[in-house]
Design a protein around this nucleic acid. Structure first.
Length: 807
DNA sequence: CAGTGAGCGAGCTTCCGCTTGACTT
């Protein structure tokens, strides 16, 4: 009914008054404010010339970035401010609002969105008469027009729930972090979300440390039917694991020359259903598994797809598809795959605390099977397209056949199974992957030859392979997101930033754990003979998984000991429940905060005052045989360190940093003492001293005020003078290549070859050279001119934060 | 980018959730 564009030119708004009668008013000047500029652009197209659509770019007001900004004495009143980078935007919004006859606050329909609407109302100085609050769940013309026909008021209860959320997070973060600065080291942080994320990783690591692997024997037979035309072989696995070599051997003995026969056969239909369309969290997981993207990579690529209009909004916890989307997807399946593959499905979100302000992530135009863009964009789009299509497709129908193969005289039996896909359904386009790829297991997708109960079967080969139970897997970025979502902790917009934060704080790192070699035994029965062979495999190797650092472990244990309430996995779920009560108008927002603060704040004060006998996380290693002084390890201002002696003992204590790969929990006295052998002098080269040491960036060689990193294949303890000199000369050679040109007029000016091409370095400042310049022919005067030109000047310092964890 | 740390000291660090910048030394 809203299809024709002409209709919009005469667009009007229907209101109902108290008597229920409708009247229509006409307004030419409307301002709609949404959160995202891409959304604004789309909506503007739907609404026509009487509507101007602007974006608030998220929140326009917040607590001060550095101050506590909560008046705890007066009902926890938050003190808001407009951040500097938003001032210009607010000015523009204010002006547009003043020019408009009606302002429509169209931020998302969730807690944060409602708060954004309220902040806009306050900051823009809007009035009740010329403001309306509208919400829509999908960006389609009918949905938006419907929303405009059904405006409402700002929901102050929902706003209060947001304020409670904001204030609570500020209290926890800004009261807890300083305790860490005082007790552990400066610039650390704690928070409702990040601290629990770290806890998950620390706990998993402790499980792995405590894990004792158990051996077992897995018995697999390659068989074929004795009678019948088919000589096709099939695999069958023993129905139980054997505990040791003796029982494996005894089983193989029983199988030697045995007459196997088919026992019962079961044929079961099996049904597989497609996964729901993507949310932020499931997109991040699948993109990690299928495309190898990091969580933040996925979000960056998705953002570009969204901005170029290819997909719907990428930060969502909803699996819902709009009715319009469902019908176009259905049409697409009908036309390109076939009617029998179509099954319309409506998905409902089951995750805790989901707020469902948006649709699921899907292509905006499903008929577009592929898009133009970078390789990454294409691949992510394809993934989204397939998942969306599959979500509206029929179940796959599978027939699973299971046959027991009996061993005479034994109670164990072999089990062979085969699957036949009767109807592929959604599998035709999309198969969801899983985290637990059990590497050794067979594919299990084989088919079985025709057989009947009582048929005799012969074994070509039976192997009993020694296996070991697997330690629990470490978290990946994606599996951590999954876990956080299950616990209801964090929101779609924060999963990626949270993972960056805990790495930037050096609580966890993407580690590389070297595996260890392990021998295992394989017993084989073939041609009536049992043979045994030894094989080796590496186990426990892990790459790119999240591993806690020493600092992460110490901070976590400290928080668990003294602030168990915050570290409780259910803390967020509990307070979410309270926020819901606030949103429903059952309780006042600051009552709950007051109760929390009355307990939390004194606890913070007490812990802060606590005189601890040892520094948090400190461990005594023993006595230094040379000096007789005690040796201990702990977290220092710059990370983990070893210390000989104590502050109150005789003489100043000595310090040394731990090296990469060493941990305060596992380092031995011997290893610790070794660290004090550095720095050491190797000898002389070209008349000055060559020494080695370990700095913040790892082992180095120092010679005449210059440093050269020591590569992994040498140890700083073992390196010889010759090797060190070779490193120095290597570095000189590469530096010589770096310098394109120098000038006699001014030694401070150099033309250098860098990572991004040739540039000019003058008094430690870098200047870019205009494109098309023949750099080899540059004269001194030309260089000075380039430096003088504003356009080539180095950009003013940005407040760069470390975005990647240090290597 | 490079050897830090044990005490009368300056001043700083920090949260979670909404949104996109301007940036390639």
């Amino acid at each position: 009914m809203w299809e024709g564009d002409d209709r919009l030119l005469y667009f009007s708004v229907t209101h109902s008054n108290k008597t229920g009668a409708h009247y229509i008013i006409y307004m030419p000047n409307n301002l709609v404010i949404v959160e995202s500029p891409a959304k604004a652009k789309t909506i503007e197209k739907f609404l026509g010339k009487d509507f101007k659509v602007m974006s608030s770019y998220g929140h326009i007001r917040d607590l001060h970035k550095k101050d506590f900004s909560i008046d705890t004495a007066h009902g926890f009143k938050p003190i808001y401010e407009i951040p500097a980078e938003k001032k210009e935007l607010v000015k523009e919004l204010k002006k547009a609002a003043a020019d408009a006859d009606m302002v429509w606050l169209a931020s998302d329909e969730d807690r944060e969105g409602e708060a954004i609407a309220w902040h806009l109302y306050e900051v823009l100085g809007l009035t009740h008469e010329k403001t309306k609050r509208i919400v829509f769940h999908e960006i389609t013309k009918p949905a938006i027009l419907y929303a405009i026909e059904h405006p409402r008021e700002i929901d102050y209860n929902l706003v209060d729930a947001q304020q409670a959320r904001r204030v609570l997070d500020r209290i926890v973060g800004f009261e807890l972090s300083p305790v860490l600065w005082k007790k552990i080291k400066p610039a650390l942080s704690a928070g409702r979300v990040q601290s629990v994320a770290v806890r998950l990783i620390v706990e998993r690591e402790k499980e792995i440390e405590a894990f004792v692997s158990e051996q077992y024997y897995r018995v697999v037979a390659q068989m074929h039917c004795a009678e019948g035309a088919s000589k096709a072989t099939f695999d069958a696995e023993l129905n139980c694991r054997l505990h040791d070599a003796a029982s494996a051997k005894s089983l193989l003995e029983a199988c030697r020359g045995a007459k196997f026969s088919v026992g019962s056969i079961a044929v079961k239909p099996l049904k597989k259903s497609p996964a729901p369309p993507f949310t932020t969290s499931t997109l991040q997981q699948e993109a990690a598994r299928k495309l190898g993207f990091t969580v933040s990579q996925t979000m960056m690529v998705a953002q570009r797809l969204y901005e170029s209009g290819h997909i719907t909004y990428m930060r969502t916890d909803s699996v819902n598809l709009s009715s319009l989307a469902i019908s176009t997807i259905s049409e697409e399946i009908r036309n390109t795959i076939g009617e029998q593959y179509l099954k319309v499905r409506h998905y409902h979100t089951a995750t805790k605390g989901a707020q469902e302000a948006h649709e699921a992530i899907r292509p905006t135009y499903i008929s577009q099977h592929e898009i133009s863009g970078t390789a990454q964009e294409k691949r992510l789009y394809e993934l989204i397209w397939k998942r969306t299509i599959a979500s509206q497709m029929a179940d796959a129908q599978i027939e699973k056949t299971t046959a027991d193969i009996l061993i005479p005289g034994r109670k164990e039996r072999f089990v062979a199974s085969g699957e036949v896909i009767k109807f592929d359904g959604f599998l035709r386009v999309y198969i969801e992957t899983r985290d637990d790829e059990s590497s050794v297991d067979n594919e299990g997708n084989s088919t079985l030859p025709e057989m009947q109960s009582g048929d005799s079967v012969e074994a070509d080969k039976i192997t009993a392979m020694q296996r070991f139970t697997q330690q629990p897997p470490r978290y990946t970025e994606a599996s951590l997101v999954k876990k956080l979502e299950e616990l209801g902790i964090g929101r779609p917009s924060t999963y990626a930033p949270t993972i960056s934060t805990i790495q930037n704080r050096d609580y966890v790192e993407k580690g590389e754990k070297k595996g260890v070699e392990r021998k295992f035994e394989v017993l084989t029965l073939k041609d009536g003979k049992i043979t045994s062979s030894q094989k080796t495999e590496t186990t426990g190797a892990d790459k790119g998984k999240l591993i806690p650092t020493d600092v992460g472990m110490v901070v976590n244990d400290f928080l668990e000991d003294y602030f168990p309430q915050i570290m409780d996995y259910n803390f967020t779920a509990k307070i979410e429940h309270e926020f819901d009560e606030i949103a429903d108008g059952e309780v006042k927002w600051n009552d709950g905060i007051g109760k929390f603060y009355a307990e939390f704040h004194p606890n913070v004060e007490n812990v802060s005052k606590l005189r601890l006998e040892h520094k948090v996380g400190e461990r005594q290693l023993g006595i230094d045989p040379k000096s007789g002084r005690p040796v201990s390890v702990k977290i220092g201002r710059f990370g983990p360190l070893v210390q000989i002696g104590t502050a109150d003992g005789d003489g100043k204590p000595q310090f040394a940093s731990l090296q990469k790969g060493q941990s305060v929990n596992t380092i031995t006295l011997e290893e610790a003492l070794k660290l004090f052998e550095l720095p050491r002098t190797l000898g002389d080269f070209e008349g000055s001293e060559v020494s080695v040491g370990v700095g913040r960036f790892g082992p180095y060689v120092k010679h005449g005020g210059k440093y050269v990193s020591i590569p992994k294949d040498y140890s700083p303890q073992g390196i010889t003078l010759e090797q060190a000199v070779a490193l120095i000369e290597e570095k000189r050679a590469s530096e010589a290549k770096k310098v394109v040109k120098t000038f006699a007029e001014d030694p401070d000016l150099e033309v250098l070859n860098g990572r991004y091409g040739v540039y000019i370095c003058y008094k430690k400042q870098n200047y870019k050279i205009p494109k098309g310049t023949d750099t080899a022919a540059l004269t001194y005067e030309e260089c000075k001119a380039i430096i003088a030109d504003e356009a080539n000047a180095p950009k003013k310092k940005r407040t760069t934060r470390r975005t990647t964890a240090k290597k």
